[in-house]
Design a binder for these strands. Structure first.
Lengths: 120, 120
DNA sequence: TTATCATATGAATATCTGTTCATATGATAA
DNA sequence: TTATCATATGAACAGATATTCATATGATAA
């Protein structure tokens, strides 16, 4: 009860009303922020990041990616599915083999920015 | 056993050796990719993204952020801790109040890039 | 000092997510 | 057709993580 009261005090009394109102007006819509978080979330897994950087130079089949990164075919396939549904990679079928590549140059520039960021 | 065999065939036989070797040479170091994934992971949560965008215009105290986003003080505090240890925000104490702000302009530009990305 | 407030933190819980296992699908060759 | 291969997928499991609850800390004012 003590805690509850303290929180209520905090949330409803100590807020700087004017500042909060202003920030609320300049903030992007809730939905956009959710989408943005989802977007970053895809990059926030080391397996997916490694797959993306493997695809930076050239298209690769599932087998190549698995061998290259020391992963099982299944794990790669599942992650490629995530990357594909997020429009980060696209697939091209050639007989039994499926080649994956980065979806567009936009993804390339994001990956380059990632590298650049960590160098700072 | 059938499955195991198929996987081995796939991983060790169907790999395009030359392509894989070339990609391995051009890829960033493993460690860098892990760090990069960790970096993106911080942006990959809607609560943290919302906090970051709330701080894009001005510094805010914990109370303001909680009231602004409809979160408990505790949840905000925990997430600010994550953001701070990732060097995305910094804290300034003023009496009982602690004001948080984006750590540097670099973070600003990343957030702006995020907005820009979703507009495409 | 004591009381109060703003914030921080540890533990527990619940949810989410990545991998594995088993199996299915789609394509080629015999 | 059947056999084989490359890939995809559903279910189960395990590990990670965000929130909540209870409490602690650090600061101000009385």
């Amino acid at each position: 009860m003590e805690t509850k009261k303290a929180i209520e005090k905090c949330e409803f009394l100590c807020v700087h009303e004017d500042v909060v109102r202003e920030v609320l007006q300049t903030m992007p819509q809730e939905e956009i922020l959710y989408d943005l978080a989802e977007f970053f979330k895809v990059f926030g897994d080391s397996t997916r990041i490694r797959i993306l950087y493997a695809l930076r130079e050239t298209e690769l089949c599932v087998c190549d990616i698995a061998g290259l990164l020391g992963l099982t075919q299944t794990a790669v396939s599942h992650q490629l599915r995530v990357l594909k549904s997020s429009k980060l990679v696209k697939a091209r079928r050639s007989g039994k083999t499926v080649f994956y590549s980065l979806d567009d140059d936009h993804i390339h520039s994001i990956l380059d920015m990632g590298i650049h960021h960590l160098r700072e």
